[in-house]
Simulated assay, not measured.
Amino acid sequence: SELSEAQLKKIGRPNYNSISVDAASSGNPGIMEYRGVDTKSKKQLFKQGPFAQGTNNLGEFLALVHGLSFLKKHDSDRIIYTDSRTAISWVRKKTCNSKLERNAKNKPVYDLVDRAVQWLKENEYETTIVKWETKAWGEIPADFGRK
């Protein structure tokens, strides 16, 4: 569904004082990876994976927490964009509600998830998390381009 001129105007342009995070999973569950990039230049700032088994939601969650910890470590005032409402809600609740059952194949992913949840519980952060407006701006700059 296309946005009207008025809607586009109201949404405005992305804030380029930001980083963008995204995940890709081939199959659900399937091989999963995630990364964070500078929103303006698309320069890759971090990347994890590919992991043998994960889901898009797990990847989006890990990408968002990795981004928060990256910005905190660099004492950055940048905002962070994600196109995942699920990841935003899991981060707010400091939890991960994945339905994927833990097994040997996805242990590396769940080890990172456990660390991410622990990080959220132990750290304060000032970073503003913003939903990327895909309909207005196109795919998020961190997108893996596999659609």
Results as ranks from 00 to 15, higher is better:
K73L: 11
S69Q: 14
E139G: 10
D75Q: 15
Y16I: 03
L100K: 02
Y125P: 01
G49N: 08
Y125E: 07
K105S: 12
T86S: 08
V65K: 00
G59V: 00
A63R: 03
I79Y: 05
K105A: 12
Y16E: 07
S18D: 03
N123L: 05
I80G: 01
V37E: 02
S69I: 14
F51Y: 14
V21S: 06
D75P: 07
T86Q: 05
N56A: 03
T82A: 01
A52T: 11
E2L: 14
E101Y: 15
P29G: 04
E60N: 09
Y81V: 06
W137E: 05
V91Y: 12
A63M: 10
R102L: 15
A116I: 10
N15K: 08
I19Q: 02
R92P: 07
G54D: 04
P14V: 05
K43S: 15
R35Q: 06
L62G: 00
I140S: 01
G30D: 02
A142N: 11
L120M: 13
V65S: 00
V21K: 04
R13E: 15
A142G: 12
Y16G: 08
A24Y: 11
T128I: 14
I79M: 11
H66S: 13
P108T: 06
P50D: 06
G12F: 06
E122G: 10
I88T: 09
